[in-house]
């Protein structure tokens, strides 16, 4: 469970709803003097400006953490080739020939080594989502026909990692999966 995301959302949602409920109650209150808000236009201007500053701070903090910049200046020590097709993943330590795609039976990577997954599709769009042994989604990219997406990741914990398709790809989408081992 990504608790931090859920908690962040809940805090923001509760604050927003509380403001709405409070404002609503002021309109129902009998002792209000129907004065409304003083200098409303000026306050609205400041509200928008403050919102802009908060969003700019949030963007400047989060954008550098985008997956495109993770491990961008490092050389991966292992490359795994992935070709997705309805409804399985072909994974190999060597390049995959799209005309006769064959994968390796077992894929193993070492803990703490930088791995690059080179992901493509042989038919429709698929998702290539990596779940840790506790089935928490930790990384993903898309498998798109005609393109190779490069996903770099360093696995800290040994164990069995699962791959699920997260882009709807047809009637057996929900059973399209694979796995690999981190030693």
């Amino acid at each position: 469970m990504h608790y931090s995301i859920l908690v962040l959302f809940l805090i923001l949602a509760v604050i927003s709803i509380s403001v709405f409920v409070y404002v609503f109650l002021t309109s129902k209150s009998n002792d209000n003097q129907s004065t409304g808000m003083a200098n409303a236009l000026q306050k609205r201007f400041w509200f928008i400006l403050i919102l802009l500053v908060i969003l700019c701070i949030f963007a400047s903090v989060t954008i550098p953490k985008s997956p495109y910049y993770q491990f961008a200046d490092k050389q991966p020590s292992k490359v795994i080739h992935v070709a997705a097709q309805q409804f399985n993943f072909i994974m190999s330590n060597n390049a995959i020939d799209p005309k006769s795609p064959v994968g390796d039976a077992y894929i193993t990577v070492d803990a703490n080594e930088l791995v690059e997954f080179r992901v493509t599709s042989l038919d429709v769009n698929h998702g290539f989502a990596i779940y840790d042994p506790a089935f928490k989604l930790i990384a993903q990219t898309q498998a798109m026909p005609g393109y190779i997406n490069r996903l770099r990741y360093q696995f800290k914990e040994p164990g069995l990692y699962h791959i699920l398709c997260l882009e709807y790809c047809g009637m057996a989408h929900q059973v399209m999966r694979s796995y690999f081992t981190v030693k």
């Binding site: 954008i63 985008s66 997956p67």
Partner: peptide
Amino acid sequence: TISNNFVLHN
């Protein structure tokens, strides 16, 4: 937010 989308997308 791209860094969140990495674990929330789809």
